[in-house]
Design a protein around this nucleic acid. Sequence first.
DNA 1: CCTACCGGGCTCTGCCATGACG
DNA 2: CGTCATGGCAGAGCCCGGTAGG
Length: 380
Amino acid sequence: MMAQKRMVWVLWSIGRSSAHRHAFIPMSGHSSSSPIIQKPPPLHSENESLLENLSSMGVDLNMARRRQPGVLRKLLTNEQGLAQFLMSKGADQETIASIISRFPRSITRSCEHLEERWKLWRNIFKNDSEVVGILSRSPESFFRSSDNENLQENITFLRSLGITPKDLHRLLTTAPRTFSNSVELNRNMVELLQSICLSLGGKDHEHFAKTIISKNLYILIRSTNRVKANVNFLLSSLTLSQAEALLLLQSHGAQILDLSHESLKRNFKNLQVKLQCLGCSKADFKKMILNYSLMLFISSERLNEKLDCLMDAGIHIHQIIQKPKVLDFSLDILNQRLQDLSRLGYDFQKNGIAVLDSSKKRFHAKIERLGPLEMESAAV
DNA sequence: CCTACCGGGCTCTGCCATGACG
DNA sequence: CGTCATGGCAGAGCCCGGTAGG
């Protein structure tokens, strides 16, 4: 059996230094009656010539060892083939070394396997360099699974959902792990989403699932338990009507399904308490979430800071509830803008707070219109 | 010309646990 | 037992501009 494997291996490894194959000398010369004594080429030691090989390629051995120690003990590996392959696709030495360091098992893939997998990815990407980019960003996404058939099935499955080529591209770019999931796992998530739609009285469950995926490209790498828990939590704690829920989940709400359940609950409760302290009603709270649920992404401390800084500037909490999108901006930007506006004597009660929710360009244009004399100070 | 509404773009890996398999 | 493949988790926002309509 070993011999057979080896022959296949030889086909893989053309062009590779044969040094470490010779290191494979089965424990000959040791007395079989004293297994404890046999120390020298023990089964569980690292393959020295492999280490040398990797080292000369610039691989960080300590990192590799920490991540997948077993690979360094292997006798048959394809690091040279992998390197040549990636180089032919435009990766440089440094990138290759980094890929191997971060995901050592990559060197166990055969050249044929690599060719095939690459071809499948290229179905979705425009060119090789895009694939190289993803690989260097996330080697694990490409290499963790060796199941090319599953990859093909995934692509077929996702296409069958009616996901556009553009979204498929975004999906693989943004959440490449999706494609290493088993088709079953992806299908489970899609079916969960569809069943959520149906349970809410939605008519087009396929469109619903597709919409959520395109709004939240990470959804397929979340667990169904998390998504289920988050949806249930939102439905019950906000007492949403079916129509409200369908609407929310197909818009900005799709993204907050990503949060770990604990974070969602924590951020949710914090906001609830905060609003309560400010004298707001339950309806206010609900309205705020429906207006812009993404602020649930913001950690409680940060959100409180933002709310406080807005209110210190004389903005009323009900203005924020009407337009929670202003919380989308960083604390720095908010503070800067509040300063600029207060210098100009801007009256939030009279003029509203929409001015805070604009791009830099538009905000500065606005400031200039409000107070031409203050241009320099407003220009950051 | 100005504003409000609205949606989009960017972005997310690297680690651990577990079960299958040999 | 060791290795592999796979599932799952923690962590926790910001910014831009098209465009309809005043």
